[in-house]
Amino acid sequence: MEKPRLAVFKFASCDGCQLSLLDAEDQLLSVADALEIVYFPEATSRMEAGPYDIALIEGSISTPHDAARIQQVRRDSRFLMTIGACATSGGIQALRNGADSAEFMRAVYASPGYIEVLDQSTPIADHVTVDFELRGCPINQYQLIEVIQSLLAGRTPRTPGHSVCLDCKRRGTVCITVAQGIACLGPVTQSGCNALCPSYNRGCYGCFGPASQSNLVSLTSQMEQDGASKQEISNSLQNFNNNAPAFREESRRLLDRNGEPY
């Protein structure tokens, strides 16, 4: 049987998620054994044309060129999976959504006329049908390997939608909010990192985006009671997943800017 053909594409992103695949040192050779990596500019100069069995998409759509390119990638790919916060929710660069991007360009670039950019940074799923979304900033390499394994085995991947709290409890991390009063987005954030930050005494930053049916209003009300300002709480939600609907709506609600830019 021929090996499935894997392609990795980059859109507006920092490359960190692709690097997670290269970082999966223990498993990378097995991946290369099980699949044929035919397009992965970050790793190899071999760049074959489609069709592809599995396409991993990193990054958001932020230029007209990318908006057209993703359509071609979709046509070329049987199973299309987005990897990381940029591809699944628009990334940190989605902070510009609704703001005056022409003004940003004038402020940053000497000759902004050469830059062709869309007003919004949007997730891949806004443009094409996505078969699977893998969250995280960056993604967890074990989850990526798990999804590839599940595709090869024809089973459902284990990428749960529950909160970070469950992972803290499984690994024996004492709740830093309850025991130390540290603000933490863990109760409303999807797991995926094995609750990394709380195990280092840092509140969860929400890198994997909102958990299923997350109750943002209750958590932010508690944070306010504990002394955080609305602005501080809103800022904590305007991170890598600022454009994920649950985080976006709550950060806007806190600042009473319904649908308005920040």
Binding site: Q27, R155, L166, G186, S214
Partner: peptide, 28 residues
């Protein structure tokens, strides 16, 4: 309206006993 559905209560409860069972395979 208040519950975060975060699972903390069930995890610290000394009698809660729910679990899930999953199959974990390697790449081969």
């Amino acid at each position: 309206e208040r519950c975060l559905s975060c699972t903390n209560c069930t995890m610290v409860c000394p009698t809660c006993f729910c679990s899930s069972v999953e199959e974990v395979s390697d790449l081969t």
